[in-house]
């Protein structure tokens, strides 16, 4: 176990039930100080429940959660003021303008971040004088991003942060996350789209039906994901020799073309291929999406109807 000072979020066998429904089923996670941690899972897997426990909106049924060294309940408002939170669905009602809402939000944190409202609004192209309830989904999300980042919190908890932002703003958002990280902040972001976090997260946990099914470095996940290799030969060949190669799986032969999944070093595959006349080859990194899907596909029949995984996301 890492020294407690270096752990920003820790959960221990965290369980949360809603009536008879178990939303979190023994979640163990450690998020280290200064890292960007991706929290992945399909809708309904328990991501928002987990986040709302960390913010003391929900109280755990069993187990333990600790944020910045305190339980969310003990930490209370003092702890929450050190966190920047972007809700998955930001609801805003009333006549207030973005400016008024953001100033109010700064006021609720003792004034911290008020000075950054204007520059951040300009950076994201948010018109501060318009009433929040008249804003488009994208503009609402900008308000959410601003209020989460403006007070330079130690910990950012972002629930589906890039939903609603166009690609240009997603890019700007990722830059903002990197700046926060460079300033010493820890970032915990959830998503149902892997590509959204793989660019920026060092480690990723995958949650499914309230359980963590995988937790690893993005690089390791990528290694496990492997490469999709396509080789085309001058003449039809016997695929049997390829099937037995180390690290080679899912070999398919179609005329003169051999397709396979390669995990690990390509050396053996290349040497086997070189025995023939190769006219064309390609090797593509498999999208982490594919790996993500592996986790949800097996066993497929267990997948509930409300679990949907979005693959493209871009």
């Amino acid at each position: 176990m890492t020294a407690s000072n270096d752990v920003v979020i820790r959960t221990d066998a965290l369980v949360k039930d809603y009536g008879s429904i178990r939303a979190l089923d023994g979640v163990d996670i450690e998020v280290r100080r200064g890292e960007v941690f991706g929290f992945l899972g399909p809708n309904g897997a328990g991501k928002s429940t987990m986040i709302r426990v960390l913010l003391d909106q929900l109280r755990p049924t069993a187990g333990h959660a600790e944020v910045l060294g305190e339980t969310p309940r003990e930490g209370g408002p003092g702890l929450r003021a050190r966190i920047g939170y972007l809700p998955g669905e930001l609801a805003m009602s009333g006549r207030a303008t973005s400016q008024e809402l953001l100033e109010h939000q700064a006021g609720l944190r003792g004034g911290a971040g008020r000075d950054r409202i204007a520059p951040l609004a300009e950076r994201f192209g948010l018109e501060l004088s318009r009433p929040v309830r008249a804003l488009s989904k994208g503009n609402r999300q900008k308000v959410g991003v601003l209020q989460a980042f403006m007070h330079r919190p130690e910990l950012l908890i972002l629930d589906e942060p890039t939903s609603g932002l166009d690609p240009l703003l997603q890019h700007e958002f990722l830059a903002l996350v990197r700046e926060a990280q460079a300033g010493g902040a820890t970032v915990f972001m959830s998503s149902h789209v892997l590509s959204e976090v793989e660019e920026i997260a060092e480690r990723v946990a995958i949650i499914r039906q309230g359980r963590i099914v995988d937790l690893d470095e993005v690089a390791t996940l990528r290694h496990h994901a492997g490469q999709r290799v396509t080789l085309t030969f001058a003449a039809p060949i016997d695929a049997a020799g390829f099937r037995s190669l180390p690290g080679v799986e899912d070999v398919e032969v179609e005329g003169t073309t051999v397709r396979c999944l390669l995990r690990g070093e390509p050396d053996a595959l290349l040497k086997a291929a070189a025995a023939h006349h190769v006219v064309r080859w390609s090797a593509e990194d498999r999208e982490l999406e594919d790996l993500f899907l592996d986790h949800y596909r097996v066993p497929a029949e267990e997948l509930r109807a409300d679990e949907e995984v979005t693959v493209d996301g871009r």
Binding site: E74, P77, L79, R82, R109, A112, R152, G183, G184
Partner: peptide, 20 residues
């Protein structure tokens, strides 16, 4: 509320309101 904010907000005393 005045002055530039530090790169990270100083830890507040816990379980007390931060807002006035």
């Amino acid at each position: 509320a005045s002055g530039p904010s530090p790169s990270v907000v100083a830890p507040a005393a816990s379980s007390t309101d931060v807002a006035t």
